[in-house]
């Protein structure tokens, strides 16, 4: 890495540590964060209660009353020095999902505005997004909610300054070269460009959280009639997956 400040190990709250691998989103930092979390889970250190990742960081929460900070910090430091995390592989058992999506129309009124910000016609915008295999970089914000990237450079568009009051479950929204897919009805500053019948969070199901970091997704354009049919009849809103080698 060119920037030797990273990885950066800092406390978060009175009972947690955050290891940050970059100052901005980068693919190696994202892989490093995921790999470090797997290693922490495998290590099974005393007192560790939970770990997770953001786009570029790994977080660990521990019982600070039973294990002291120096101990956890030392273990983390040693683990960090044990390998080049930026060169780590992606998680195993990843899936490639194909998720049928209606782009634009009255369900997704912000497609045109988003395309314009990206300097594309609506048709070209749909084609470009549909052709980009995006990866789940992290699950966060709401239960099962994926942050997917990275879109071509044209999509480095800002969030809206005004919030959209409510987007429905399955809404596909875009900003800053990323897509998010909403598991719950939500307010958002991202532009709603597509609608899927896919539910990333299914509390009643055996596997309530459908996507995992590292999974890849293709959003495949379908027409409204096909979408409506799949919405009610097909499991997972017509989405299918294959396990990646």
């Amino acid at each position: 890495m060119s920037d030797d400040r990273f990885p950066l190990l800092r406390s978060l709250g009175v009972d947690g540590y955050l290891v940050t691998f970059d100052a901005e989103l980068s693919e190696p930092a994202n892989r490093a964060a995921l790999a470090l979390r797997s290693a922490i889970e495998r290590a099974g250190w005393d007192g560790v209660e939970e770990s997770t990742t953001s786009l570029i960081s790994t977080y660990l929460r521990f019982d600070a009353l039973s294990v002291d900070h120096a101990m956890i910090r030392g273990q983390l430091q040693a683990l960090l020095e044990s390998q080049d995390w930026f060169a780590a592989d992606l998680p195993e058992g990843r899936r490639l999902w194909r998720i049928p999506t209606v782009f634009g129309g009255d369900r997704c009124p912000q497609l045109d505005a988003a395309a314009e910000l990206a300097g594309l016609s609506p048709e070209a915008a749909i084609a470009q997004i549909a052709a980009t295999k995006v990866r789940v970089q992290t699950i966060g914000f709401a239960p099962g909610m994926p942050y997917l990237g990275e879109l071509p450079a044209a999509w480095n568009i800002p969030r809206q300054t005004e919030l959209t009051k409510s987007v429905p479950v399955g809404a596909l929204a875009v900003a800053i070269r990323q897509l998010v897919l909403f598991p719950v009805t939500s307010t958002t500053g991202w532009r709603h460009i597509g609608q899927t019948a896919f539910r990333p969070f299914q509390p009643e199901a055996e596997r309530p959280f459908v996507l995992n970091p590292g999974d890849e997704v293709l959003f495949e354009p379908v027409d409204r009639a096909t979408f409506e049919a799949m919405r009610t009849s097909a499991p997972n809103g017509g989405a299918t997956f294959e396990v990646l080698p």
Partner: peptide, 8 residues
């Protein structure tokens, strides 16, 4: 506790 990694 334990579901942070899944967004909960």
């Amino acid at each position: 506790p334990g579901y942070m990694a899944l967004g909960l």
